[in-house]
């Protein structure tokens, strides 16, 4: 085992981790803020992937350009879904447990509807295309070019999101609600609107991730759920409600998985990621970077 190969494998994990991070940030915007656990998150990713696939194969649109379509289209769809399914649920005063349980039920329903809708529209055939699948030589090692490009795009989108959260008024409202829901409301923040924005942003980011993933992997209507689970591991790892935590968590998970798989077998990938999760939860029960960690048991009001 040479050090060069080890570094090579770790860097490969980092590239995939970048995508994990982007998917997880989207989920975290929903769960961290609203306590709405959207198990259909991966389905929006799948839809983003299909949008890119269809645009590329039928209209010759470059997959990177298609992000401009898949992101906003799914963002708008997300705002719509929020208005129809979640707004009333969130408006009614409920306990956190009740809200989580009901939103879970809704998103399971959404998962089935989206998956089967995709199945009716596009059938279960594998869909994929070749895009930048040449090897790219960097510092003596080889990386798939499309993976490097996907990572770069994920980084750009994430940077954009961070800027949005830090530099805009809407972003400030999101952060305020994450930090202190009651205080934010007292300051006159329109909670329903911020929630709609976050839900839309969350699924929009999932769609962008899906578009990027479609450059690397084949699509079927069933690709989404495993990514939802990975994203869930990442946000718990990084801390609920912490955007930075999701980023670091995603990268860590990518690298640890890659190295773990390299030394054992791909069979153990899930075992490895759950082991990392268990370890972090034992050492830091609220995740690596949970902003609410110093307020355990705080009830979230929506």
């Amino acid at each position: 085992m040479s050090a060069a190969l080890l570094l090579d494998v770790a860097a490969g994990g980092l590239l995939l981790g970048g995508l994990y991070a982007l998917i997880a940030v989207g989920l975290n915007l929903q769960y961290g803020l609203m306590r709405v656990l959207n198990v259909a998150h991966g389905e929006f990713l799948m839809i983003g992937g299909y949008v890119t696939y269809l645009l590329h194969v039928h209209a010759g649109v470059d997959p990177l350009v298609s992000l401009v379509a898949s992101g906003p289209v799914v963002f708008a769809a997300g705002v719509g879904v929020h208005a129809v399914l979640y707004r009333r649920l969130l408006r009614q005063e409920r306990t956190r447990e009740e809200l989580e349980a009901n939103s879970l039920l809704i998103s399971f329903g959404l998962l089935f509807i989206l998956q089967n809708g995709a199945l009716l529209l596009w059938s279960a055939d594998l869909r994929g295309y070749q895009y930048l699948d040449q090897p790219l030589r960097v510092l003596g090692t080889v990386f798939p070019a499309n993976r490097v490009v996907a990572f770069a795009m994920a980084a750009i989108v994430t940077a954009w999101l961070l800027l949005f959260l830090r530099r805009t008024l809407a972003g400030a409202a999101v952060r305020a609600l994450m930090q202190d829901p009651v205080g934010a409301r007292l300051m006159g923040i329109n909670v329903a609107r911020v929630h709609a924005l976050c839900f839309g942003l969350g699924v929009g980011l999932a769609a962008v991730s899906g578009s990027l993933l479609s450059m690397l992997f084949e699509l079927t209507p069933f690709v989404g759920l495993p990514y939802t689970i990975t994203a869930l591991v990442v946000i718990i790892l990084g801390g609920l409600g912490s955007v930075g935590g999701s980023l670091v968590g995603g990268l860590i998970l990518g690298v640890v998985e890659s190295l773990g798989v390299h030394f054992t077998a791909p069979d153990l990938r899930m075992v490895i990621s759950y082991a990392v999760l268990a370890l972090v939860l034992i050492l830091r029960p609220y995740g690596l970077f949970n902003p609410a960690a110093h307020r355990p048991g705080q009830s979230v009001q929506a």
Binding site: L5, D8, G12, R147, V261, P266, D267
Partner: peptide
Amino acid sequence: AKAYPLGVKDLTDVLKGIKA
């Protein structure tokens, strides 16, 4: 000689090892 699970998402690490 390596096994991987049904629904595997990534084989690059394994293939890099095999190539090496």
